[in-house]
Design a protein around this nucleic acid. Structure first.
Lengths: 169, 169
DNA sequence: GCTTTAAGTCAGTCTTGTTGACTTACCACT
DNA sequence: AGTGGTAAGTCAACAAGACTGACTTAAAGC
């Protein structure tokens, strides 16, 4: 039981040899890519005394305006107390604004102020540039594969959280 | 300047429309996939009082036996003090063993003990299972695209760190 | 009216990262 | 043989960001 390699027959009738070696390199690929991918915004955040947690909150508030606090907690997968710390700062600093829920007045609907939206663009700019460069150089088929595998890596419950317009299989 | 979308002509002569929407969903894809991907080992680690930092150290020591401390620091991208804390525990707990360098006796060459290797397998097992499932269901072309895009997302300097056997383009 | 829920807070803990300063042992070069 | 640089290790202090647990306030749902 030295070489635990396994062969699978794919629906498209091609043989897939998934060696431990290949699986391991994927683990590293994800580690390094994710680290570099988050590195650029991390530097911008540090200048303003924020951290990655602020970025994540800003990202989801930007793209799901009027999200509730509970909704944001679920997206991020953190506790109320953990989110509250960064949210408190963002609200106090005027980057995030709260609005009382119309149907449920207990809810606080979150959205970005103009200043918050400006920061969001600054933060996501290097990530978009990085993706654009990678996507362009890799080509559409590679991009489709990239997205499909990422989709299949995540938990079934998580999958529904990705706002994913293009009709994926 | 509302819709900052951009079109690029790929070398393979196909048009790629990279909308902000598409780029944004990739950001979320990476976030969610990475989170779920690391979730399983995180649970196992927590039982033993370890964290993700221990897992990373164990991973690289396993797959690059006789790596030096400086080498490991470079791979992980952390400071000596930060690594030392987790390394100290792993050595004290008998999971990692040190060996004085042959050519340079200042170096401490790191490798896993049997017990360390056992833990490594336990930790990487759920990740390998997850990848195997995703790879198998997505198919070889998707896997190739996945790997290619991840490669191109990371920094040029980082790329050399991935032990990547299969002859990638 | 009573219970549940959404949000917010206070307090304490833990992991993991950082700086900065310093020691010990060893290598390399003059 | 001596000197300077390097590899490893340590101490101390600090910060971000996660956690648990307990508790309050206000509003919703019955």
């Amino acid at each position: 039981m030295k070489q635990t390699s396994s062969a699978h027959r794919h629906s498209s009738d091609k043989l897939l040899f998934l060696t431990d070696e290949q699986l391991r390199s994927a683990i590293e690929l994800l580690f390094f890519a994710y680290r570099d991918f988050t590195g650029d915004p991390d530097r911008i955040l540090a200048e303003r005394g924020y951290g990655r947690a602020h970025h994540r909150a800003i990202h989801f508030i930007k793209h799901r305006p009027d999200i509730t606090v509970a909704g944001l907690i679920e997206m991020l997968g953190v506790t109320k107390q953990s989110l509250n710390r960064v949210l408190r700062q963002l609200i106090d600093d005027g980057l995030v604004v709260q609005k009382v829920g119309e149907t449920d007045r207990r809810q606080r609907l979150l959205s970005l102020s103009e200043e918050g939206a400006t920061l969001e663009v600054q933060l996501s700019q290097p990530q978009r540039d990085r993706l654009r460069q990678a996507y362009t150089s890799a080509g559409p088929e590679a991009v489709a594969g990239f997205r499909e595998v990422l989709h299949k890596i995540m938990n079934d419950g998580t999958r529904a959280m990705v706002a994913d317009k293009p009709g994926r299989k």
